[in-house]
């Protein structure tokens, strides 16, 4: 084991917190999606670290699937956001407040 598993967890946790913070703070829809992507990657890191730590390949396969699914997620999300941009002309989440 190059690095003790605990450090990997720490890294992933900070990365996860960063992603969440970014998703919550930025006032731009795309940046929110980006923040969520970072959180997904943090999870991937834990998986890789765990599979190395446990010496079993399940973690790796899991990461491959995560990458694929994250890709589909981004495509669907961006499609809706672009669609929204074409309709309302803005990325700012504050504009989308019609539903009471």
């Amino acid at each position: 084991m190059i690095a003790p598993f605990r450090d990997i967890l720490l890294l992933a946790a900070t990365l996860f917190a960063l992603g969440a913070f970014c998703a919550v703070v930025r006032r731009n829809l795309i940046m929110i999606v980006l923040g969520i992507e970072i959180m997904l990657n943090a999870a991937a890191i834990v998986f890789v670290g765990a599979s190395l730590h446990l010496n079993n390949l399940d973690g790796q396969t899991f990461v491959l699937f995560i990458l694929a699914v994250a890709a589909t997620e981004v495509s669907v999300g961006l499609a809706i956001i672009v669609y929204a941009f074409r309709r309302t002309g803005s990325f700012d989440p504050r504009h989308f407040n019609l539903l009471r």
């Binding site: 998703a23 999606v33 969520i36 959180m39 999870a43 998986f47 765990a50 973690g59 899991f62």
Partner: peptide, 16 residues
Amino acid sequence: SFASAVMLFGMALLYS
């Protein structure tokens, strides 16, 4: 997607 990210992180911890 936020929820699925959280879930994934949880799964990772469980797996580990």
